[in-house]
Each structure stands twice: as structure tokens, then as C-alpha cells.
Amino acid sequence: MRLPIRGMLALGLAAGLATFASAQEGHPAKGSWIGEWKGNSAGESVLMVMSWDGKSITGIVNPGTDNLKITDAELNPTDWSIHLKAGDYLIDGKFARLELPNRSIVGTWKKGSAGGDFEVVRQ
């Protein structure tokens, strides 16, 4: 299997940054997340920034185009699944390695008929 150079660079960057993830023992969604956004015509990397105000998750998603405000966010702590809506994007993922600073969210995204898998790692 051959990986595109840009994809490898993005993965390397994400892995490198993940090594230096700052500690975050509060709300698991809080922080900056970088990773892969497969199947996106504008690029296969994504940036998410999420915060927690005590009642809701806020922030932005940038799938290589522009910052899209998160307008809807639901975290289900029973299985640590998360649903986000940002612009026309619908994102469904699940936390992995919850206990680590460089935890990740893995799932799928959809925008109209387009869509794909994604994985972001907390920085």
C-alpha cells in the first residue's frame, strides 16, 4: 500500500505533536485535535478545537477549508461517543485511549453525499 506524501507528512506531524500533548485531566473533549480526514477533496487533514463551558462543547472544525463553528455537540459518556455538527458537516466519533493526554477520536464524517473516516489526536 502506498500512502500519499502529504498524508504521510500529516501523519508524521500529528504523531510528532502527539508526543508532546499537554496534560488535560478535565473534560476529555477539551483541547486541540489534529488528524486525518479521509475522502475530503480539499485535503485529508483536519483541525478541531473544542472547549467545555460546563454545559456544552463549543469550538471549531477546520477540514482544510475554513473554520466552521460547532453548532451542535453531544457527548455520550456511557460509551464515550461524540456527535458534532459544524457547518454542513455531521461528525460521529468515539474516544480512544481516554486516559492519555494524546487521546484520539475515531469515526466518520458526512457532508451531503460526501463522507469518509477520520481520526484526530489531541495535541
Binding site: S22, A23, Q24, E25, G26, H27, K30, W52, D53, G54
Partner: peptide, 16 residues
Amino acid sequence: NEDFWFSNGGLPHTDL
């Protein structure tokens, strides 16, 4: 900050 556990048993806290 949120970089530590504020109790021995692992009760979470936030920066609020």
C-alpha cells in the same frame, strides 16, 4: 489548571 488530579481517588475538576 486541568493538568492534575485534585483528589487521591481521581475525581475530575475543570478550570471553572
